[in-house]
Design a protein around this nucleic acid. Sequence first.
DNA 1: TAATTATATTACCATATGGTAAAGTAATTA
DNA 2: TAATTACTTTACCATATGGTAATATAATTA
Lengths: 109, 109
Amino acid sequence: MKLSVVALGQIAEYFKVLSEVSRLQVLCSLKSGAKNVTEIMNETQLGQANVSKHLKILTQAGLVVRQPRGVNVYYHVADPKLFDLCELVCEMLKQQLQERSVVLNSHHF
Amino acid sequence: MKLSVVALGQIAEYFKVLSEVSRLQVLCSLKSGAKNVTEIMNETQLGQANVSKHLKILTQAGLVVRQPRGVNVYYHVADPKLFDLCELVCEMLKQQLQERSVVLNSHHF
DNA sequence: TAATTATATTACCATATGGTAAAGTAATTA
DNA sequence: TAATTACTTTACCATATGGTAATATAATTA
């Protein structure tokens, strides 16, 4: 399948949302279920404005769903496949590391 | 599994490399096999210095392997699982679109 | 209604990033 | 060796981005 530049743009945009440590921290904190902003702040140690900002980005990109409940606003990940994605990257990175170490070892310093 | 901020940083870095249209174009052009810089330029319509720059980033991140052969330099993707990753994102985006259209339709304007 | 709590937004700064022209390097051929 | 081809690097600009303090908004409670 040949993807158009526009389609690649959407994919790039999705990856860009995932390309920041703080946002990954927020997503990780939501792995165990929906949380409100304060809970996310406490779990990630990020500043309040910062968390709000990142949550907005995640929500607009559709990675996360916003649900106001009284004074609080709860967020949860829209699609659990997101974690499969991260898992896959983890595996690739592990394998990459392993292959690099093999290359290093083969040199017998 | 609870990931450290350092680990998340590596994952974020990987996603960041994939978060640019030009780099995705380059990777797509390598889907059919190894290519040299000129071939990549022609297929992607990107400038020469630009392609070189992105190839450097892709190589340093370990997504692509560099192989000089005479005057030319050939590049190929290090791990075909990379395309599974993009495929997965594609599917998630499609589903996202579908769900959004359902929401729209349910409003009966 | 006033005060409080929870979240969002704005304004600002410092830094990072993509694209490109121009110069540099390296292998090949005449 | 001079010229050519293929690729890389550098310098520069314009723009985008994360973090934060301060301010705004919105829901709840006293």
